[in-house]
Design a protein around this nucleic acid. Structure first.
Lengths: 168, 168
DNA sequence: TTCCCTGCAAAAGTTTTGCACTACT
DNA sequence: AGTAGTGCAAAACTTTTGCAGGGAA
């Protein structure tokens, strides 16, 4: 058996589950202000409210959910502003838009580094993970296709460990 | 240099570009009839027209595009029937629904084996490919997460080889 | 003061549904 | 004949846009 083939037992765990970043909302907000200024755009109360809720959220939020959350702290805000601010955050490269299996989009903080998603089909939980092997293989695929890779998306669907354990 | 590191030159190409399957539309249609019969549902002219166009299509078609194509051979058909038939084909496991970067869904024949997609950001071309390494790594990730994998989705975005070559 | 931004409402785009009628089996 | 399927139109749902008024720089 060649030496490299023995690695399946020695290989350390390569999949790192991403923890939601703690209490950095204010830093992201500052970054948002900076990007707005660079573009000659304005900071406003509504944009701050929306962006703060978005940055504080620990999950992949939909526009509808974001609207509901923002309404709690600023009942005056409209849907249009939610969507316009989401688009703005995307243009400022602070937000990623995702289309999992649904019609509606979900949004997450454009936190580096790149990561992928595992979506539990029973409880709906979304686990973010990083795996270098996966990324390396993807680059290899692009190379073999003669293509240039600019971004990639991996979504795994199945039963998470909690749902596997619990009966039914 | 350790021996395993030399594999980058020896490794055979692992990425196989999937060719659209030729002239199997009638076989798929027969399969559709069979699944309908099993479920006590009816075969109709509209369902056949829609399914035939869908099975003959070599690309990832949207409901809108499918509607336009079907209209050409059967101008009487309605949007509702398009969507109802798409849902039916999905329930019969003959169709996969995809949400690439858009709001609207695209549909493809549920052809085995599993394959993934490269989407060219300039010309919009969608290349289907298979890569065993990628699949193996994905199963490994699920194992490390303690999860059961039921399905997976990989989408790579970038410039295809044609667009890389052509100027502008 | 100058634009940019906001809310509202309406529109646009995608998908689903109610209902009376049609047509498979 | 009985039941599932169809077309149309309307509704539902998500996202975008026009416009008149409001507010940040």
């Amino acid at each position: 058996m060649p030496r490299w083939a023995a690695t399946s037992e020695e290989t350390p765990v390569r999949t790192v589950v991403k923890r939601p970043s703690e209490a950095k909302a204010e830093r992201w907000l500052a970054l948002f202000h900076e990007r707005l200024r660079e573009r000659g755009l304005k900071s406003t109360g509504q944009r701050d409210d929306i962006a703060r809720v978005f940055f504080e959220t620990r999950r992949h939020i939909s526009a509808e959910e974001l609207y509901a959350e923002v309404k709690k702290i600023n009942p005056h805000v409209g849907y249009a502003t939610i969507y316009r601010t989401l688009r703005l955050l995307k243009e400022c490269e602070l937000l990623h838009e995702r289309h999992f299996d649904e019609t509606q989009a979900r949004y997450e903080v454009a936190d580096e580094p790149h990561h992928d998603h595992f979506i539990c089909e029973r409880c709906g939980k979304i686990i973010e993970f990083e795996n270098r092997d996966l990324e390396r293989t993807q680059r290899q695929v692009a190379r073999e296709l003669g293509a240039t890779l600019s971004r990639r998306r991996v979504e795994l669907y199945g039963l998470c460990s909690d749902c596997k354990r619990s009966p039914q």
